[in-house]
Design a protein around this nucleic acid. Sequence first.
DNA 1: GCGACGGTTCGGCTCGTACCGAACGATTGT
DNA 2: ACAATCGTTCGGTACGAGCCGAACCGTCGC
Lengths: 231, 231
Amino acid sequence: MTSPSDLAALAALLADETRAAICLALLDGRAWTAGELAAYAGVAPSTATGHLHRLVDGGLLVQRRQGRHRYVQLADPSVAQLLEDLSARIEPRPAPPRGLRAATASAALRRGRTCYDHLAGRLGVAVTDAMTERGLLDQSAGFALTPAGSAWLADVLGWDPAQPRPSRRPLVRGCLDWTERRQHLGGLAGAKLCETFLGNGWVVRIGSGRAVRLTTSGRVMLRDQLAISLD
Amino acid sequence: MTSPSDLAALAALLADETRAAICLALLDGRAWTAGELAAYAGVAPSTATGHLHRLVDGGLLVQRRQGRHRYVQLADPSVAQLLEDLSARIEPRPAPPRGLRAATASAALRRGRTCYDHLAGRLGVAVTDAMTERGLLDQSAGFALTPAGSAWLADVLGWDPAQPRPSRRPLVRGCLDWTERRQHLGGLAGAKLCETFLGNGWVVRIGSGRAVRLTTSGRVMLRDQLAISLD
DNA sequence: GCGACGGTTCGGCTCGTACCGAACGATTGT
DNA sequence: ACAATCGTTCGGTACGAGCCGAACCGTCGC
């Protein structure tokens, strides 16, 4: 039997508005830095540090230290599920997907979609994996572009990641996908990649949602450049 | 999008040890009185009143006033589900039921089982409904035995509910069953009924768990006395 | 090496809230 | 009508927890 104090301790982790904001932000699957979360939640960095400690100790978050940065992420998909269950109780869902049309849309989303401004779904994961295998991306300690990867991006995208950037946004960043349970490429490079894929007609949006479909020319490009063959 | 303050407010309801104890107690599906919950949680009645107000306002609990009593219950099965999801994160489940043996046991539990000391499952609900239909039980305002119901119990059980009782336990009490989503008969009368069913061999326990099986003599008795026919 | 930057620790302030006891309704049964 | 019981309201206390600023530590880039 679960003890009341254990349940209360778990609930207390989410019972603070700042911690709730942090968890909801992390629900996008990305790994955020402590400073980003502090700014997002509108509290001082020192305050955020304390909250992150509690959330990590409580098992809701995991952290990864990388240089002077501390990246933080939801611990596992079940945490995301829990947060979504709680959210559902606040605002009931429109309706569970029913019927052939909805099932088709759902399958399309699993195949490929955009996550904010970069590629996700099986397509996003496949591209990320292929880049890693071909030495373009280093996933051993977080995400980092190799020199070959920078060159490849410059070649494919006509955009050189080594150029000085106006934005403070990280060049590459891991983004966890809850349906695939795999990391895919986010960050500035991920956004540029997605932009190019759409701009060159390698993928097209299905309707007005986030789902995307790989085109024939896109399939050719992936096969030639990254030796990827998707259904 | 869910706002952080809404999520925090919901979590805060469970973030107090006393409120958590109350919710876990109510997870048995029964309707408890405010005083019982106060004693169970080990706080003063005035303190419990405040907590119950918060839980009802927050939508986790519903209340029903009956005389000078205030009965309180989980608002709906989804609340029970949420509590169980949270508990599961504290102590991971042994394993989901797999295999024929487990599926059979699961089905047996759905058919008939004991809930603490009274009958639940489809059997418990069927008995309760039959008693209501035959004017033995009044469910219009909570649960109450009709005079005819008292006589029937005295006849069937050889136990007169009208006799002065040593126990302070309520004579009858509604008990919500999450799998059936229906109320069944709890309280002292429910316990006596269950005791008689077991003592007369109308139902027998399956193995050492809570599942029970209706015997042939039990089937006859239900048909004759309450016009119930179960598979 | 030295500054810049991200993150952490510590001290101190403030506010929320859980708690109880006592007094006060409301209901039931004698 | 009266007493007993269940529940509620109110006032007052105390403890916990969130917040910030300042000082400090480790990493990165020049």
